[in-house]
Design a binder for these strands. Structure first.
Lengths: 219, 219
DNA sequence: GAATTAATTGAACGTTCGTTTTATTATCCT
DNA sequence: AGGATAATAAAACGAACGTTCAATTAATTC
């Protein structure tokens, strides 16, 4: 046999990507075989090589597009001219929403870095660093404006990203908490962690600024 | 050839464990071959099966002993009768110190869970849950005593653990920050995150309790 | 110093891996 | 309708995998 009735390159490629993300997230890149992937798609293993020249090319493509998607989502949402508190809130909201929506892809991008060749690893890490740099910028702005209280901008950024990304480890949709509830709680924790103060634009001109410790945020 | 001069079962087994932790942490469990491991130890692959009946037994042994070590370290350090703030500080100090000291073993225990058989996975997860439960207990005590301000005990515990464990992702000994410096900063961030208040035992009897937002901790 | 036990080698087994090659069929274009 | 092209199947490749087995030598025991 050869070409099957109704076969379509675009649809097959999309099916391969989706199946690959799920299989790699569940079993790991090394543990997933090309035959297993092909079987999931309903195709022979040789057919996969029409779309991805090697197994590693497939992995790299998935990772690169995930990281690009993350960057683009942030660029679209990023509030320009907002104060650091609002920027931080937007960053967190985008990060959590994006990662919960694409749990499996995030798992792949975070866990399978070691299966990339050195130069491809560098490419992915560069994208990740650029994304993290945005957060460091927000924290630095807030610290310099006296709105945040952070000892170490870089260290705080890493701590926050680990904390936010960690959501995908335990969060399961449809369980105890909804996405907005989780986001709201993480927002409160984040604002306390960075020692965010109320902007205090009007009223009480010289009183000691109060921290946001006991304020809640809408997700 | 056969038995080599100076060969010793105990030393070989220890060498196998150490090499396995390093190789699995670097390349992943699936990607590490038994021949590669044997070569690292300076032995033939068949010799490994004298100490571990299967590759998965080796992985499980490494994980189980790592989790046991973590539990035991905490049981030894755990301050009895201390207030929640001190307990939380002790938990964090132990967690960070243990994980930085055994970065590779932690990587293995966190990343290779999917390579375990179902019942062994359950065993490891049970140990992890028991350890995390200690933190939830501390947070609950602090919340009930009005010392902490946490919206959701379970969620806060997960966020803190992700944040603390995340240190091993970026921390490299001998770089910009020392372990005590990192620990001190994480302690401050943690105390702010949980909205810890000063105990206020004497003085200023009914004034609004101040948060620890701007206090620093010694590591 | 012989018998026993501990530690390891070297070769082999069957399986599975990623990948390539070739042939075959469906679809599209003119 | 028929030639070009796209999409797949089927079979095969060599290499590598985890594991087993028998043989062999070092250390220990009596």
């Amino acid at each position: 046999m050869a070409r099957t009735t109704g076969s379509d390159g675009e649809r097959t490629e999309a099916a391969v990507r989706e199946a690959a993300v799920n299989l790699i997230a569940r079993y790991g890149y090394e543990a997933m075989s090309m035959r297993q992937l092909a079987s999931e798609v309903g195709v022979q293993a040789a057919a996969l090589y029409r779309y991805f020249p090697t197994k590693e090319d497939l992995l790299f493509t998935l990772m690169r597009e995930h990281m690009q998607g993350l960057r683009e989502a942030w660029e679209r949402i990023k509030p320009t001219g907002a104060d650091p508190t609002q920027q931080l809130a937007a960053y967190l909201r985008n990060h959590i929403a994006f990662h919960i929506e694409r749990r499996h892809a995030t798992h792949v991008s975070n866990m399978e870095l070691r299966s990339l060749s050195p130069d491809r690893l560098t490419q992915i890490l560069r994208m990740r660093t650029a994304y993290e740099k945005e957060l460091r910028g927000i924290l630095r702005d807030g610290a310099e404006a006296g709105i945040f209280n952070v000892e170490d901008t870089g260290l705080t950024a890493m701590a926050l990203i680990q904390m936010m990304t960690g959501v995908i480890v335990w969060f399961r949709p449809g369980e105890r908490l909804s996405v907005p509830e989780v986001t709201a709680t993480y927002l409160s924790m984040t604002m306390r962690l960075v020692g965010a103060k109320i902007a205090d634009s009007a009223a009480r001109p010289s009183d000691a600024q109060r921290t946001l410790s006991h304020f809640s945020f809408r997700a």
